[in-house]
Design a protein around this nucleic acid. Structure first.
Lengths: 122, 122
DNA sequence: CCGGATATATCAGAACTCGATATATACATC
DNA sequence: GATGTATATATCGAGTTCTGATATATCCGG
């Protein structure tokens, strides 16, 4: 169970939101599910990140009352804060994926065996 | 020019030391060179990291006097602190590379298009 | 009514980031 | 010999991030 850092969290959260609007708790569950239980992003990592994404204009938010079935329509039920990926957020996701691919590429090169004269050159 | 975070710094520094002993300043240069100028690890990131690696027993250290050619043998010249990868450090590097590969794999899977029923299944 | 799941959010101590600063030697150029 | 750049190690400090713990409140099954 790998705890995600903010860079990876951002990538993963934006990626989840690319599939459609969601809310904090559901996103943590989606991350766990979509990663076969390998990735973990806890509440204390999730909510500050979502706030940050909102401030950056990468997501827009709205509150929704979660009414229990047959509940008193006047009673104030549990609330959900929905997060929707903005066009800016979608672009940022693409850029983030590109950056991630490049980092992968650069690291792979860096870690590759130090062959000064590879046979592929012959 | 990407500034490396500690996770990547550790991977990269241990990888440099796997090629043989080196010292702080040379490692920063080696990282820049080996990454074609893409990776940067500054002094304020390097020295705390090296200290940490030493405390963890991943590297061993020794001081060496850098004598200028034809310099007074009694004069105290510049000093270098050499870092050598320990067997424990070598194992840690392997583990770190494995973890990195797994993270790559998991992220790639995560970011892959959401095909619930791929045509490869038919 | 209790406990576990759902749901959002903050707190606080620890760790990390990174430009700036301190210190000192080496060396080339003017 | 002065000035500047490169070599070389190291810390400081303001800001950010990390993470388990805590707080609050609803929902639902037993």
């Amino acid at each position: 169970m790998l705890n995600l850092k903010q860079d990876h969290s951002t990538l993963v959260v934006l990626s989840v939101l690319a599939d459609g609007p969601s809310y904090g708790y559901a996103i943590t569950k989606a991350i766990a599910a979509k990663s076969d239980g390998h990735f973990k992003l806890t509440a204390s990592g999730m909510y500050p990140l979502l706030t940050k994404l909102e401030k950056q204009g990468l997501v827009t938010t709205s509150w929704e009352e979660v009414k229990a079935e047959g509940a008193d329509p006047d009673a104030s039920g549990r609330k959900r804060k929905w997060y929707t990926l903005s066009p800016k957020g979608r672009k940022q996701l693409d850029r983030h994926i590109e950056a991630h691919k490049q980092m992968q590429h650069l690291l792979d090169n860096f870690l590759a065996p130090t062959n000064t004269t590879p046979s592929t050159n012959a």
